[in-house]
Design a protein around this nucleic acid. Structure first.
Lengths: 215, 215
DNA sequence: CGTTAGCTTGAGGTGCATCAAGGGACGTGG
DNA sequence: CCACGTCCCTTGATGCACCTCAAGCTAACG
């Protein structure tokens, strides 16, 4: 795979996106990944941080018996791979064809401004992760899916329409459900007029009602 | 309440504790709290960060119908209250009589070293929160309690004995269970010889077996 | 066309929630 | 001293949301 040097702050300069997502500039090497290809494995040295330029990435942890918990989905503009320890606590994989930029973590610590950007990224992810905690700890299947869809729509460029990059199994492992429950709940939400689902295309028909489900 | 200025790095200098917990020095005002007293409320301005000197603190979020998710327990040496946004996303309350030190968040951002300490704190909490995600998403009630007890024992000063500062209801809201399930599961774990429980005193009898439950 | 991957749907089971009751520790007041 | 609460926890009986197991459906692709 040919690698080239890049200094990129915004992967989609022509499109309107939530400003917060693009506040970090990574100077590093671009890397293309095919579907399901690993970026790093749990336990590997955490020397690099990554920014998604295109595509999508999942991070997850496995229990010994194969149960999987996806801890995050990362879309263009998102940074991932920053760890508290020297090694990665989760595995990261491309969900579909994706392009990343990787930067040495050490090269960020030196610069004060980069450090500030980095800690803003981390704080934002902590915020998201706590939201996710509430979802996994206290919400029902419908509520989980509602908050998931709204979150994803907010991160995408259309507020009421989204193309899921991930499979039903990915969604299940993110929301702490089974693939069957995800599927059933989506059709049930469609039946009650909340959303329209066509494969991985989802339209949020009654966005306010969905938001109410998240309280 | 009389407040005095403090510069404290280690709340328990005479005791052996995990080194990681005491790497942040806060210069600020000491504050004593009685049981169930709020430190800050969800939505309040997040101008201060706090360090627990003695006692224990819980942070939590509520859904509209009263369901509660505790996002973290903070013990002596722990720092809490750092937010991605200008306001707190959770409420913080003292679990028992406690003493905190509070410091202006702005006073930390200025200093490069303090910033480094701060981001280390945040990274550590992100790490913990992701562990918690795996627990809430994919573990059974026994597994949840096992990982909870082991985590708490690791943070305390004895590896196989601990005094829970929080109620069964707090534990339930932390682990995404009901108080009845927590109670039942503890007695069942005692029956199978994993732990010995006497009110809020817990002894980890077969620590290795408990750890196996967490995989 | 057969095969596979991804998704949906159905039937039945179960882990945990819900509802309900009781017990022990502690305080308060007579 | 006992009677009475309240708080916290435990235990039991029952129900249900979601899981498990199983089958079928569609689209893509050799």
């Amino acid at each position: 795979m040919p690698a080239r040097l890049l200094a990129i702050s915004d992967p989609n300069p022509s499109q309107a996106r939530p400003a917060e997502r693009d506040d970090m500039t990574l100077i590093g090497v671009a890397r293309s990944l095919s579907r399901d290809q690993a970026v790093f494995a749990e336990g590997a040295a955490a020397d690099f941080v990554y920014k998604v330029m295109s595509g999508a990435v999942r991070t997850f942890r496995l229990l010994a018996d194969g149960r999987r918990q996806i801890t995050g989905f990362f879309l263009p503009g998102d940074v991932f791979g920053i760890e508290a320890r020297a090694t990665h606590a989760a595995t990261a994989e491309a969900i579909c064809e994706s392009v990343l930029v990787s930067a040495r973590r050490a090269s960020l610590g030196a610069d004060g401004e980069a450090l500030g950007q980095l800690s803003r990224c981390v704080l934002r992810e902590l915020h998201r992760t706590r939201d996710h905690l509430l979802t996994l700890g206290r919400r029902s299947a419908v509520e989980r899916l509602a908050s998931f869809l709204i979150d994803l729509a907010d991160r995408g460029r259309a507020a009421d329409r989204l193309a899921l990059p991930m499979s039903r199994q990915d969604i299940a492992d993110y929301l702490g459900l089974t693939i069957e429950t995800v599927s059933r709940t989506l059709t049930q939400m469609q039946a009650s007029g909340l959303v329209r689902v066509d494969g991985r295309q989802v339209q949020l028909v009654r966005r306010a009602a969905l938001a109410d489900l998240c309280e």
